[in-house]
């Protein structure tokens, strides 16, 4: 049983805990069922889905780096139709909210995926805007506020679910992107996606990854993620899901103090598959030990004026 201390309501989602499995690191949840009782997880965010199946990148796809890893999976996935027919029914047998992470190569594709996944059994949609925009020379949708806003609007118009926009950290001004997504109607923000990086094999004189570059994740990126959550929290009226290098309960608390209402665990699932289970227990213990009446009290504690620094809470108090 999960303690009610951990209850987390945000963006229309009612979660038993603020701990979410990050997209791409937890498969479709079922892969972890032997090791993590899924009904104790706040929500499972599934691997990024596109309209049609995708094979992903060739060659080596992951490599370890200091305190982290690079990945260039290339968004391999079986496509929404397969997900709806073969995977979602199995996942629905577990009592856990499902967040569908989606991507497209054009704004139209994002809209079509959102529409296809607007079904029972999906609790929310998370838009991965770090995907390259094919029509604009492959620059990621998530690096330009106007393009990002167009994606969010298109998705919003095609779903009844809460929409979470997942921000890319590979930008100069994360706040501008966050505000653009908010204005376009996003109900929440996830941050951060992976940081672009590269590793070269000095024996072969070649990049290690088949795709040359890949996304950096794991403990190495945690300080970047905490900084971005802290900055964005002070400028938007919607809740944040913080992620990036979370592995211990201290990291969960840090992310929440920076302004995250929920926290997603990614890379840690890969190297310690029972992480979400351990963190649930330890977060409960933390609340009891620190005498917080509910875990949501921790949110924003590190901001200059605590929760008062977060427009998200100011808005709530007015209504």
């Amino acid at each position: 049983m999960v303690s009610s201390l951990l209850k987390t309501d945000m963006a229309g989602l009612h979660l038993k805990t603020p701990l979410i499995a990050a997209s791409g690191t937890f498969g479709f949840g079922i892969e972890f069922a032997d090791l993590v009782p899924l009904e104790q997880v706040g929500a499972v965010c599934v691997k990024g889905l596109s309209l049609t199946p995708s094979c992903g990148n060739c060659g080596q796809r992951v490599v370890e780096t200091p305190s982290g890893m690079l990945n260039a999976i290339g968004l391999e996935n079986p496509g929404c139709a397969y997900f709806l027919e073969h995977i979602l029914p199995k996942l629905q047998t577990f009592d856990v909210p499902v967040i569908a992470n989606i991507y497209g190569h054009s704004i139209e594709e994002y809209a079509a995926v959102a529409q296809a996944l607007d079904v029972n059994g999906v609790s929310a949609v998370e838009i991965n805007i770090s995907c390259p925009n094919v029509k604009q020379g492959g620059l990621a949708f998530g690096t330009d506020p106007q393009t990002a806003a167009k994606v969010v609007k298109a998705v919003k118009a095609n779903t009844h679910k809460p929409v979470i926009t997942k921000l890319s950290p590979n930008v100069t001004d994360i706040v501008a992107l966050a505000q653009a997504a908010e204005e376009a109607g996003s109900d929440a923000l996830s941050l951060i996606n992976t940081l672009l990086g590269m590793k070269i094999d000095i024996r072969t004189h070649r990049p290690v990854l088949g795709n040359m570059v890949g996304g950096l994740s794991g403990p190495a990126v945690r300080p970047v993620a905490v900084r971005m959550v802290y900055q964005v929290a002070q400028h938007v009226r919607i809740p944040l899901i913080g992620m990036g290098g979370v592995e211990r309960v201290e990291d969960v608390v840090e992310m929440m103090m920076a302004g995250a209402s929920a926290v997603a665990v990614g890379t840690a699932n890969l190297y310690q598959p029972d992480t979400l289970l351990t963190l649930t227990r330890e977060l409960q213990d933390y609340c009891v030990r620190e005498k917080v009446s509910c875990v949501q009290d921790v949110v924003g504690q590190a901001l200059p004026q605590g929760k008062q620094s977060m427009p998200y809470f100011q808005k709530k108090e007015k209504v």
Partner: peptide, 21 residues
């Protein structure tokens, strides 16, 4: 192939089979 999760979740280790991924 280089593996991360070993559980079928991360898709680090996929390859093209005769009939399926």
């Amino acid at each position: 192939k280089y593996m991360a999760c070993g559980l079928g979740a991360c898709l680090s280790c996929t390859c093209q089979g005769r009939e399926k991924r």
